[in-house]
Deep mutational scan, measured.
Amino acid sequence: MSIQHFRVALIPFFAAFCLPVFAHPETLVKVKDAEDQLGARVGYIELDLNSGKILESFRPEERFPMMSTFKVLLCGAVLSRVDAGQEQLGRRIHYSQNDLVEYSPVTEKHLTDGMTVRELCSAAITMSDNTAANLLLTTIGGPKELTAFLHNMGDHVTRLDRWEPELNEAIPNDERDTTMPAAMATTLRKLLTGELLTLASRQQLIDWMEADKVAGPLLRSALPAGWFIADKSGAGERGSRGIIAALGPDGKPSRIVVIYTTGSQATMDERNRQIAEIGASLIKHW
């Protein structure tokens, strides 16, 4: 067993022997301040990774656009098919120029040779490549099948209805392509620590998230040296922004954090800054 596999296998073990965790309302004060600064709703939840206990939450059962955070769930569904012998990570998928959609920095470079399922998941999570996500959605049967996968996990809230990039439209009061912070946090925890996926697939999923290259201005910008984070960000229309993450000190994750916002007129930089400040408060009061 590799060191990384050992780390993920012992996530519940280490967490069980940690000192009790206590909620700190100071972080919620910052979440509410972010709402004021952005002029928009902000949803927040913080779960203990081992027990699933909610440590703090704000608007945990209000719907927010998922945006690209759905790509972690998508690759979880792909990995479940791999575990069941219905898919192979090494299978190569070929596609054409007509398949390319807006923001496809990886797939646009491989029109000639195609990409493997493993490479597509890596591109979808680490670079948020939209064509990679659409190609992977095709392998599982489309958005409705991802929703069905989530329902089978016990998540009857999260739903995907459309493809990239239309799913980022974020129309107010439109339930399409949305989740709730509580539902997303619980589902992410199941994917990373539950028995739904094999140990190898859980490790692969967290490795992809740990290698995320496009979430630097968010929670990662607030992390002290030595902290662990595996995350996936999302951005959408109407001032929408979000991030889902597993993080913790001492090089291992111990909490799940989900943050979503929508309806702001603020710039992307300002949305990023507010999420980073929430992260800084979380870490300060850990």
Rank of each mutant, 00 (worst) to 15 (best):
L137Q: 14
D174G: 04
R271D: 05
A77Y: 00
L199C: 12
A215K: 02
N98A: 00
P249C: 12
R273F: 13
G239F: 05
L100V: 10
V214L: 14
Q274F: 10
C75D: 15
Q203K: 10
I206Q: 13
I243P: 02
G239N: 01
K109L: 13
I243D: 02
S240D: 14
V78W: 07
G76A: 03
R92N: 02
R59S: 08
L135W: 05
Y103S: 12
N98M: 01
A34D: 12
M153S: 09
K32N: 01
D99I: 10
G216A: 06
A222I: 07
A211Q: 06
V31N: 10
P181H: 11
A280Q: 10
G251L: 07
K190P: 15
D155C: 03
M66S: 02
I93H: 02
L49H: 02
F228Q: 01
R41V: 13
T179Y: 00
D207K: 09
R41D: 12
S80L: 05
S264C: 01
D113T: 00
I275H: 13
I125V: 01
Q203D: 07
Y44P: 01
V72E: 00
R271S: 04
K30Y: 14
T147R: 01
H151N: 06
E169K: 03
I140E: 13
I259G: 11
L218P: 07
N272Y: 00
V42R: 04
E270T: 07
E175R: 10
I171S: 03
Q204W: 00
R162F: 12
L74T: 12
M268Q: 05
T112P: 12
D250I: 02
L146N: 15
G239L: 10
L218E: 12
A40Q: 02
G239P: 13
E237D: 09
P249F: 06
V101H: 05
A225L: 05
S68V: 00
V72C: 08
V29S: 04
R176E: 10
T186Q: 11
T261P: 03
A124V: 11
W163R: 11
L191T: 07
D231M: 08
S128D: 15
S57V: 14
R159T: 00
F58A: 00
I54G: 05
R241H: 07
L73H: 12
G248S: 05
I206V: 13
E87M: 04
T69M: 06
D269P: 04
N130C: 13
E237S: 09
A34P: 01
S264W: 07
E26F: 03
V42P: 05
L49E: 01
L137R: 15
M184T: 12
G142R: 10
V214Q: 14
E270G: 14
W163L: 11
V257Q: 03
P217F: 03
I244H: 12
E210V: 12
A215V: 06
G194R: 00
R41I: 14
L74N: 07
V78D: 14
N50A: 12
M153G: 13
Q265G: 09
W208E: 14
V106P: 07
R202V: 06
S281W: 05
L282K: 13
L223S: 12
A211H: 03
V31W: 05
L191K: 03
V214R: 14
T267L: 12
E277P: 12
D99V: 14
E119I: 09
H156R: 07
A148Q: 07
V106H: 13
N272H: 00
I259P: 06
P217L: 08
I229M: 04
Q274Y: 07
R41W: 07
Y44L: 09
D177G: 08
L192W: 10
G234P: 00
I45N: 00
E166Q: 12
I229G: 04
F58M: 00
E87R: 07
L38T: 01
E46F: 11
M180G: 07
S201N: 14
P224I: 00
I275P: 14
I54A: 07
T116H: 06
E87L: 11
Q274V: 12
A246M: 08
E35V: 11
L55Q: 08
F70N: 02
E35H: 09
Q204G: 01
R118D: 15
G39K: 10
V42M: 12
P25K: 08
E166N: 08
C75E: 15
L111T: 10
R176K: 15
T179H: 01
I229W: 02
M153P: 11
L74I: 14
G251A: 08
R118L: 02
K284D: 09
M209C: 08
N50D: 07
R63K: 05
L136P: 09
G279D: 08
T139S: 05
T262I: 15
D250E: 09
G236Y: 08
M66W: 01
K71V: 04
A185T: 06
T138D: 06
T69L: 06
E108D: 01
V31T: 06
V42E: 04
A276F: 10
A34E: 02
L49D: 07
L136C: 08
E175Q: 13
L223V: 10
E195R: 02
T179F: 01
R91P: 10
L150N: 15
V101C: 05
P60W: 05
T186P: 09
S264D: 03
S68N: 02
L218K: 01
W286K: 01
Q265D: 03
S233F: 09
V117H: 15
E62A: 00
S80C: 08
D155M: 08
W227N: 10
E277K: 13
T139Y: 06
T147K: 08
G194A: 09
M184R: 13
G226M: 01
P172C: 14
W208I: 02
E108Y: 00
L219R: 07
D161M: 12
D212Y: 03
A215P: 04
Y260P: 01
K213L: 05
S51R: 04
M67I: 14
G239D: 10
S96H: 01
S264F: 10
A280S: 11
R81P: 13
G90W: 02
I229S: 03
I243M: 03
G142D: 08
D231I: 05
D212Q: 15
N50K: 05
I54H: 11
A280H: 10
E166Y: 11
A123Y: 15
L73K: 05
M67V: 11
K71F: 00
E61N: 05
L100A: 09
A170N: 11
K109V: 11
T139W: 07
D212E: 06
D155T: 09
M184Q: 12
L150D: 11
K32R: 02
H151L: 11
C75W: 02
R162H: 03
V42C: 13
I256H: 07
D212W: 13
D33F: 05
I140M: 12
I93W: 02
L150Y: 15
A225H: 08
R255Y: 13
A276Q: 04
A225V: 09
A211V: 02
A215S: 05
P165Y: 06
Y44H: 02
A266D: 11
L79H: 15
M67Q: 09
R91H: 10
T267R: 13
S51F: 01
K190L: 15
A266L: 10
L73M: 05
G234M: 08
Q88Y: 08
D48G: 09
D36R: 04
I283R: 11
A133W: 00
S128M: 14
S68Q: 00
K284H: 06
A77N: 00
N130Y: 01
T131Q: 09
V82D: 10
K71S: 03
Q37E: 05
